[in-house]
Structure formats: structure tokens, C-alpha cells
């Protein structure tokens, strides 16, 4: 997939999956697209349909109710698709680790390519993470 990935790196389209987060990482993801941080300069664009996505940005603990839907979303995505887990929740559960609705961590539900921890990660951290992903694709 070397050549394909190289081309893919020029313009990654991301889809945002909220799997029971607290909204915080989500608004920081949107913040990335606005003029201060402007992620579109890397060719990264937020898309509305999973069928157009190259990257899934997953936030939240992955509660038991939504985990099945997240799986379905992942199956519907055209492959190869990269899963980036944003925040501490998908990595380890953070405050909700002992919650009765916790069906995570995310790697139990879908395969994860990259973690960007933080509660919430600062936009700079997310940009660094995404730049790292772009670097790997080249």
C-alpha cells in the first residue's frame, strides 16, 4: 500500500466519532479547523459521511450502548482507514474507568493506530499527532 498511502497523505479526510465523550475533545477537534489552528493547511478536512473518511477521530470511553455502533461505523469505512483515539478516555478510561457503562478501552472495540492522550489534549498536541501520522504515511 506504499504508493496509495503516499497519495493519501496529501489529503486526509477525517470523520469524527463521539463514543461517549464529555464533549471537550470534540470541541477541541472543531477548534483545530478554525482560523487559529487551521488544520486544513495539511489538506485535512472534516467530512460528514463515513464513506468518505480516511481517518476516524474517536473520542470518549466507548460506552456499552455505543460500542456496537462504533464497530459498525468502522466496518463501513473504506479501507485502509486510520483510527486516531483522542483524549485519555479511549486510551484508559480516565475518570470513567470504573463506570458501569465502560466497555472500553477503545482497542477492545476497534483496532487503534494512534493515541493522543490528554484531558483534553491541547490543539498543538493534536496537530503534532496528526503531523506524525502524515509523516508515517510518506
Amino acid at each position: 500500500m506504499g504508493a496509495y498511502n503516499r497519495i493519501l497523505g496529501k489529503s486526509l479526510w477525517v470523520f469524527h466519532v463521539s463514543a461517549s465523550p464529555c464533549n471537550n475533545c470534540d470541541i477541541e477537534i472543531l477548534d483545530l479547523l478554525t482560523p487559529r489552528y487551521d488544520l486544513e493547511r495539511f489538506g485535512i478536512k472534516l467530512v460528514g459521511s463515513i464513506r468518505h473518511a480516511d481517518v476516524l477521530l474517536v473520542t470518549g470511553i466507548g460506552s456499552c450502548k455505543i460500542s456496537e455502533r462504533v464497530q459498525r461505523i468502522y466496518e463501513q469505512a473504506p479501507k485502509p482507514v486510520f483510527v486516531v483515539a483522542i483524549g485519555t478516555c479511549p486510551a484508559a478510561g480516565a475518570t470513567f474507568k470504573n463506570a458501569y457503562t465502560n466497555c472500553g478501552p477503545l482497542e477492545k472495540i476497534i483496532p487503534v493506530d494512534m493515541y493522543i492522550p490528554g484531558c483534553p489534549p491541547k490543539p498543538e498536541t493534536m496537530i503534532a499527532g496528526v503531523a506524525e501520522l502524515l509523516g508515517r504515511l510518506k
Binding site: 461517549s20 460506552s63 450502548k65 455505543i66 475518570t95 470513567f96 470504573n98 458501569y100
Partner: peptide, 14 residues
């Protein structure tokens, strides 16, 4: 509803 439920009341009580 229920997709975003995390059981915070219970966490707080613990």
C-alpha cells in the same frame, strides 16, 4: 438518548 451515558452520578457517589 443514552448513547453518551457514563454513569457520573454513581462515580460521584463512589
Amino acid at each position: 438518548t443514552g448513547w453518551m451515558h457514563r454513569g457520573i452520578e454513581k462515580i460521584s457517589e463512589e
